Amino acid sequence: MKILVVTQYFWPEEFRINDICEGLIEKGHEVEVLTGIPNYPYGKFYDGYSFLKKGKREYKGIKIKRVPIIPRGKDGFIKLALNYMSYTVSASIATARLLFNRYDRVFVFQLSPITLAIPGIIISKIKKIPSTIYIQDLWPESLYCIKEVSSEKVKSILDRLCMKIYNSFDNVLITSNGFKEKLIDRGMEKEKITYLPQWAEEFYRKENEYYNMELESEVLTVTFAGNIGKAQSVSTIIEAAKLAKNNKKIKWQIIGDGSEFENIKDLVKKYSLEETVYILGRKPAKDMPMYFSKANGLIVTLANEDILKATLPAKVQSYMASGKPIIAAISGEGNDVIKESCCGLVGEAEDYRKLYENVIELYNMNLDQRKKLGDNGKKFFEENFTREILLNKLNEIINI
């Protein structure tokens, strides 16, 4: 079967769609990707790429068709909006050429914004082939998390537009069960919706020399890794670290980059936390297992927003796969999953005092107690979130 994958982001950018496409190839499908010129997260085109230089046309057997886009830049809503808009327009125009190609299925990997799904709809409707959308960011709720919209009329228009796009697909895959109720409440047929949580990439799943390593018991290292934006509420971690400021044996690591990166650095400086909080910046995804293995606990935080309560952050699966205890300040589904799996210590979103208390509790645990939490997470991951289980499920859906 030949599958056209529509995604604004693809290799060499580091997104889970890369592994999904590799998995579809493994299942015997032919995969072609309609994507943009790589520029995330740096805000400029990667070396070797430009409007005229589209780079390699194949990656691990996956054919790549790149369309020109405006780079997102590092700061500013206008540049980002132009980046989003340019992909939708360029990819939609490119569908005119793709109509002459044979495709059996269309698969859209939907991050923000939802409009990136439009080229997939064009192809599927004109060629009359089944289509699937995999929702990573539920819209318009995800938009409301980062930009305040006070006009009820505008909200009504956005609601109708987003549901029109979602209802244009034959199959709607969701990464969190919390999305299902919201879609049904807005008029979607429940038969269309399938829960397909994300799996951890290959480099998170491999056993490594550090997995059973007894880290120095006198020092506790807790690590956050991922995007540093408003939705992640990384300031909750800094506020918790402030409460633990006098305990020099607790080390806090922040790995990642994003719109709030400079604000977080400023907050560390403001509270004089340089001795205990380390802002490491962005690191290659393939290096994350090394950082995870050298941590005693892994932190996940989200802001206290309704849509985020319905979200299961993808880092939870990666943390579980690493076999380390999870320390969480999140509400809703992510909170429930961590409790169900007994793999960590949990507080509500933005509750920095509870996060501090949980880190202290982890600090006071012995190695066997910490290992038990990590083992619980790894077991839950292997029973629910492995690549093999979820890839087989995805393959079944696409083949229907």
Rank of each mutant, 00 (worst) to 15 (best):
D351G: 14
W139G: 07
M213K: 10
L161E: 00
Y9T: 05
I123V: 12
S331P: 09
F45S: 12
I389L: 14
N247E: 02
K180R: 15
V172T: 06
N366E: 12
I93W: 05
S293F: 09
Y40N: 15
E152A: 05
A200R: 08
N304T: 06
I165A: 15
L243C: 10
R282S: 12
I70L: 09
G229L: 06
I299L: 11
P68T: 07
D47G: 04
K74G: 12
G187E: 10
E274H: 01
V219S: 14
L173G: 12
R370N: 09
I184S: 07
V277W: 11
F179M: 13
C342K: 08
P197C: 11
S86I: 01
V346M: 03
K125I: 01
F51W: 03
G76P: 08
V300M: 02
P289S: 08
E32D: 12
P71V: 10
G374E: 10
L34T: 04
F10D: 04
K74L: 02
K164R: 13
M85Q: 04
V5M: 05
P284W: 07
M288E: 06
S86M: 06
Y166M: 07
I264C: 06
P71Q: 07
K63M: 01
A303L: 04
L138A: 04
T221A: 04
I70Y: 08
I360Q: 08
K294Y: 03
Y166P: 09
R370H: 14
N39A: 00
A94I: 01
D287L: 10
V108M: 04
K270V: 02
K294W: 02
D266A: 10
L391R: 13
T194P: 00
G61P: 09
P38M: 10
I299E: 03
I121D: 00
G344Q: 10
N263F: 02
K265G: 12
M85R: 05
G377I: 09
V67Y: 01
I133W: 00
L355A: 13
D47E: 01
V172A: 08
S151I: 10
V67L: 00
S142E: 14
D75W: 01
P130Y: 03
N395W: 06
I62M: 14
I64S: 14
L345I: 10
L390F: 08
I360N: 13
E275K: 08
R370K: 09
A349N: 04
C343R: 02
N296A: 07
E214S: 09
K180F: 09
P119C: 05
A244C: 13
G73H: 00
G377N: 12
C343G: 11
M290W: 00
D257S: 15
Y42S: 10
N101H: 11
D375V: 06
N384L: 13
V106E: 00
M290A: 01
I330S: 08
G347F: 04
D351T: 12
K44N: 13
I69D: 03
L80N: 03
I133H: 05
E32W: 13
N171T: 02
